[in-house]
């Protein structure tokens, strides 16, 4: 599948109808989502025929992208049942099979070494400090091959240090810097749209 085609399909998905501030529910836009998954597959072969988990999947844009790129199995995890319902409808609309699980990622323990790749757009930690790090820590325990994640560029050094020192990463690499549009979902945002710099990361876990 071509990048433009993937981006187009993702652009038609339903997004959060009533975003919950405390859970940092803002959609991973089709531009970023398509590039993230496309890079994971075309540069590293981490999606097609792999088992892919999407942490904090929301309405499932990253899950859908993984399924469209022929992951063997895709599992989306989120704490919020309304988002998972929308994600289920999105998967049906695209005619792809995706499993969804309702859980708190920060308390999740997954058994075994089944998941190859974790993709995620975690909460950036603007509401609950450290939420981004808790997601990263959890992802590094689950993935056997690679973790792809988005983090604010302003946290770059901190992320790198924590990944290598605390989360058992063999490598931690920024693949590119992107602009992330935070729509004015929340009252405390003064402008109509806030555009922030985020890094697309790739982490490789040390063999557990």
């Amino acid at each position: 599948m071509k990048l433009k085609q993937l981006e187009g399909l993702l652009g038609d998905l339903e997004q959060f109808s009533n975003p919950k501030v405390e859970l940092e529910q803002y959609p991973t836009g089709p531009h970023i989502a398509s590039r993230m998954l496309f890079t994971a597959e075309n540069s590293y072969g981490d999606i097609t025929d792999k088992v892919v988990a999407d942490f904090g999947c929301g309405c499932g844009t990253l899950s859908a992208a993984a399924a469209l790129l022929d992951a063997a199995s895709v599992i989306g995890f989120d704490i919020d049942p309304q988002s998972l319902e929308t994600a289920t409808l999105n998967a049906e609309e695209l005619e792809v099979e995706i499993d969804f699980v309702q859980c708190d990622i920060t308390k999740l323990e997954l058994k075994g070494q089944i998941v190859n790749t974790v993709v995620m757009n975690p909460p950036f930690g603007t509401r609950k400090k450290g939420a981004d790090m808790e997601f990263l820590s959890a992802a590094m325990k689950v993935a056997s091959d690679a973790v792809y994640s988005l983090h604010k560029t302003s946290t770059r050094e901190h992320i790198k240090r924590a990944a290598l020192r605390d989360f058992n990463a063999k490598s931690a690499e920024v693949l590119c810097e992107l602009r992330y549009d935070l729509p004015k979902l929340y009252k405390f945002h003064k402008r109509k749209e806030v555009d922030i710099a985020v890094d697309l990361w790739r982490f490789e876990p040390r063999q557990n």
């Binding site: 088992v51 199995s73 599992i75 499993d99 699980v101 308390k107 999740l108 323990e109 997954l110 058994k111 075994g112 089944i114 998941v115």
Partner: peptide
């Protein structure tokens, strides 16, 4: 839920030892 997912899930209640499958 498919069985590939069932194969990873366990009961994470604090203190539980025999939590899978």
């Amino acid at each position: 839920m498919r069985l590939i997912v069932h194969n990873m899930l366990s009961c994470n209640i604090r203190g539980v030892v025999n939590k899978f499958p």
